[in-house]
Design a binder for these strands. Sequence first.
DNA 1: GAAAAAACTTAAGCTGGTTTAAGAAGCTGA
DNA 2: TCAGCTTCTTAAACCAGCTTAAGTTTTTTC
Lengths: 204, 204
Amino acid sequence: MSIELINHISKHISIDRKDLESVAGFFTPVQAKKKENLVTAGLHCKYNYFVVKGCMRMYFITEHGSEQTIQFALENWWMTDLEAFNKGKTASLSVQTIESCELLAIDKPSMEKMLATHPQMERYFRMIYERAYSASLFRVQFIFQFSKEDSYLHFSNAYPNFVQRIPQKILASFLGFTPEYLSELRRKRVKIGLRGKAGKDRKS
Amino acid sequence: MSIELINHISKHISIDRKDLESVAGFFTPVQAKKKENLVTAGLHCKYNYFVVKGCMRMYFITEHGSEQTIQFALENWWMTDLEAFNKGKTASLSVQTIESCELLAIDKPSMEKMLATHPQMERYFRMIYERAYSASLFRVQFIFQFSKEDSYLHFSNAYPNFVQRIPQKILASFLGFTPEYLSELRRKRVKIGLRGKAGKDRKS
DNA sequence: GAAAAAACTTAAGCTGGTTTAAGAAGCTGA
DNA sequence: TCAGCTTCTTAAACCAGCTTAAGTTTTTTC
């Protein structure tokens, strides 16, 4: 079961085959289809999810009632409303699949039991959250560094395939602007035939 | 040495006195005065810092040459350019004291040795980075949720003492707007005598 | 495979926040 | 203790990105 998780763990820590199989036993495979909510703001957040295959996003509803995407999870990423998951509180963030997904779910009691019986796994999660923290800081840096137009250019140059894969309104909500403005940016790019190039060029 | 760190660790994990003292031995006390750079973008990032007393900030220089503050560290927080620290790379973020500080520093080899001899500490850092990750996600949520004016109102209502403690231009750079605009907001507030109240009221 | 729903586009008018520039006030170190 | 430096303020002109509203295209569902 779940060679992906096993590979991912072995890539980060030294752990023998027997322990790995025992660890894997704490997880439940979940099939989710497109646009399914695995965590819903306002409800109890029971599980933490590992993405075996597919793509999810985390979002919240703003005061104005629109969806704001905070981050994405691709293959080998973990996602849940961590604070709600850890403290048994109601979620304030939602997690939703963008494509149909294969996931592995673990609830809090299993997580604790797993960490107690396999303390090496603390190291794995320490590394996972270090990386997640760095990624989130990088995002803050990104948000402040660039104008909205440049955000779009950088992101679509850095992840052209991913951009093809997700609906534009979700991309717009991730980058922090309106779908209408994204449309305008796309048109501008197409018009002057610079689809793949860096942003600064167009001013020359 | 450093009862603060020892207290902080014991608050998170079960660890006996002897181990705690051994752990504390891996750290070096550092006194830093106001506006001192402990990590500098472009230079080697040798240490991870625990704040015993005082206040620091993390920032970077934008393309336009201005300083953008990403986050603050108060008592009992950790701060460094994590990615640079872990991978032995050049820092891309800077860490600077806002006030004079008492810190504890640890370098990468000591950190690794400490984790190897006291594997319980993996659990401590797992929790620390979980919290840091949550805080950073919350910040992203905050940035997108509020207008610049509301960001200022929320932040200064939530942390009135802290706001008194730091220079306004640093606060402006943390909230993502210009010092000039912060000045304008402050004047508006003072004028209508609503210094301590919530934002929405002022429109009535 | 038709109807309904969702996603995307276009365009005009508007506004929150920036830029620029200058002066006032507050700190700091010799 | 005062000269120089940094921070803070004020104000006017400007513009990046939003809002609104309507039309078009794509996707979903039955």
